[in-house]
Amino acid sequence: MTYCIGMRLNEGLVFLSDSRTNAGVDHVGTFRKMSVFENPGERMLVLMTAGNLSVSQAIRQIVSDHVDSDGRSIWNVTSMYDAARIVGEAVRTVHRREAKALADCGIDFNVSMIFGGQIGSERCRLFQIYSAGNFIESHDENTYFQIGEAKYGKPIIDRVINPATSLDEAAKCALISMDSTLRSNISVGLPLDLLVYETERLAVTRFVTIDEKNQYFRMIRDTWGQQLKNVFESIVDPVWNAAPDTASNVLSSTTMHSKPVRVAIPDHAGRGGHGSAPLQSLAQQFDSGEQH
């Protein structure tokens, strides 16, 4: 599995991916999920993939090499939308070629992608591309995309990220999101690739591969965990069955009449231990001499 995050901000873009793949506990490998299509001064595009590794690699190769009948390619289209269409068509090409053979072997055609960057003077744009080759674009109301094991790292992004977030804060948030995922899911693993793109640069200027020795990421892992514990311990315990509004931590007030949904006791079970014979274990039956 994998976990990748792409963020579109007023200042630019942030991309973060892990590098673990696995097909069971005996087949864990390291493959980098982030690919950069860069012509410095003219375009800088990033593609991150999750899902079936062979499908992802085939799509990436087609995206890199393909030229359509009109002579258009990822290297010469003039908008990010057209570039995303080329990626989507590459997905459909691989699907036509591989999906039936995969299905015959009981394997789903499974791939998802985050694709973003900047071409010329056009603004930075970010897309999520699905297994059918269709895609959606990030806007201010939804300024980030995740693929792979998204659920563990989503809460921190939802609380922190908005279009005005600075690139450094967004990178920090992405790394915290990744750390939360690493702690909760063994199918995501180091090393990580982090690319931070400043708008109008049209080239990669800030990129790092992060392993377990990276100073900043180790600090995040230690600090974030400790700060979470500190915040948790600073929140007072709940008070039960108190008068309402007497404190901010009243969980159950005297005016509440909450009751659980109780399952009726069946007749054969008896009530209060009366009216039915006690159940015996097999060992008890042997001890009492009730052998058959």
Results as ranks from 00 to 15, higher is better:
M7R: 01
M7S: 01
R8T: 00
R8K: 14
L9V: 04
L9E: 09
N10K: 13
N10G: 06
G12V: 07
G12A: 05
L13W: 11
L13R: 03
L13T: 05
L13V: 08
V14I: 15
V14F: 14
F15M: 14
F15S: 11
F15G: 05
L16M: 15
L16H: 08
L16N: 03
S17Y: 07
S17K: 08
S17R: 05
D18W: 04
D18A: 03
S19F: 06
S19L: 08
R20T: 04
R20E: 05
R20D: 06
T21Q: 00
N22Y: 01
N22V: 00
A23G: 06
A23S: 08
G24C: 10
V25C: 00
V25E: 13
V25F: 14
D26K: 07
D26S: 14
D26Y: 15
H27F: 15
H27Q: 08
H27D: 15
V28R: 10
G29I: 02
G29E: 12
G29L: 12
G29Q: 11
T30K: 13
T30F: 08
F31K: 07
F31C: 03
F31R: 07
F31T: 06
F31E: 14
R32I: 04
R32T: 06
R32F: 08
K33P: 03
K33V: 03
S35F: 03
S35W: 01
V36C: 09
F37C: 02
E38Y: 06
N39H: 11
N39C: 12
N39L: 15
P40W: 13
P40D: 12
P40N: 07
G41Q: 13
G41E: 10
G41F: 12
E42W: 00
E42C: 02
E42Q: 13
M44I: 12
L45G: 01
L45K: 01
L47R: 02
M48H: 00
M48D: 09
T49P: 00
T49R: 15
T49C: 11
A50D: 13
A50I: 01
A50H: 08
